[in-house]
């Protein structure tokens, strides 16, 4: 599947300043695009728009030429920068993990998710442990495009390398497209097929 953002502009209301202006971007099947821009530039806003959480003020986001579905499972999935804010604090981890599909045990073992953690509350896990849940829970075969917004800064480098290697394997196997937002140059060079700078 191909994701295309056409001349996207965004602002919160008619009086506020533009957060994004005329951003165009396309992600082909099997492509991994790095998105680079300084802090506070609107990368996360762009990620939210691409995944359909936010409507652009101007322009459109198309998947295979059609608008993103407003009902049911969206084939474009977003992994957030702050795992502690993206899980329901009143759900045990098991419920969060199985919300959209049931990941098999092999995947959980590969991601380093302990069985004992499933019965814990989010506040009882570290940032890195939570992020592994957030990644595992969206790796359903229905996900065609993955938007990764600084997903590995809270992981140690070994876990980072493990998680990225798993993600890359799955992306290659399913020919998934990916957008990767990161500040780590060395990481971007390792995982992306090309990079786009938003500030020209």
């Amino acid at each position: 599947m191909q994701l295309e953002a056409k001349n996207i502009s965004f602002r919160y209301d008619k009086k506020s300043p533009w957060v994004l202006k005329d951003v165009s971007l396309s992600i082909q099947e099997g492509e991994r695009v790095g998105i680079v821009a300084p802090s506070g530039f609107g990368k996360t806003t762009l990620a939210r728009i691409l995944a359909g959480y936010e409507k652009p003020s101007e322009g459109q986001v198309l998947i295979d030429g059609k608008e993103l579905p407003s009902k049911g499972f969206c084939p474009v999935q977003l992994i957030y920068q702050h795992p502690e804010l993206s899980v329901n604090p009143r759900w045990r981890m098991e419920k969060t993990l199985n919300e959209c599909f049931t990941p098999d045990e092999a995947l959980l073992a590969k991601m380093g998710i302990e069985k004992e953690w499933l019965h814990r509350w989010p506040s009882e896990l570290s940032g890195g442990e939570l992020q592994r849940f957030c990644i595992a829970r969206i790796l359903t075969p229905k996900t065609k495009i993955l938007i990764c917004d600084e997903i590995s800064t809270m992981l140690d480098v070994i876990t980072q390398a493990q998680v990225w290697n798993i993600l890359l394997d799955i992306a290659k196997e399913r020919n998934m497209g990916m957008a990767v937002i990161t500040h780590n140059k060395a990481l971007a060079e390792k995982v992306c097929t090309r990079t786009v700078r938003l500030d020209k």
Partner: peptide, 17 residues
């Protein structure tokens, strides 16, 4: 192992957790 896992030093994770 941490040193080897850095993206600029090979990006090789050791197995296990």
């Amino acid at each position: 192992a941490l040193y080897d896992a850095l993206p600029q030093n090979g990006f090789k994770p050791i197995p296990g957790a």
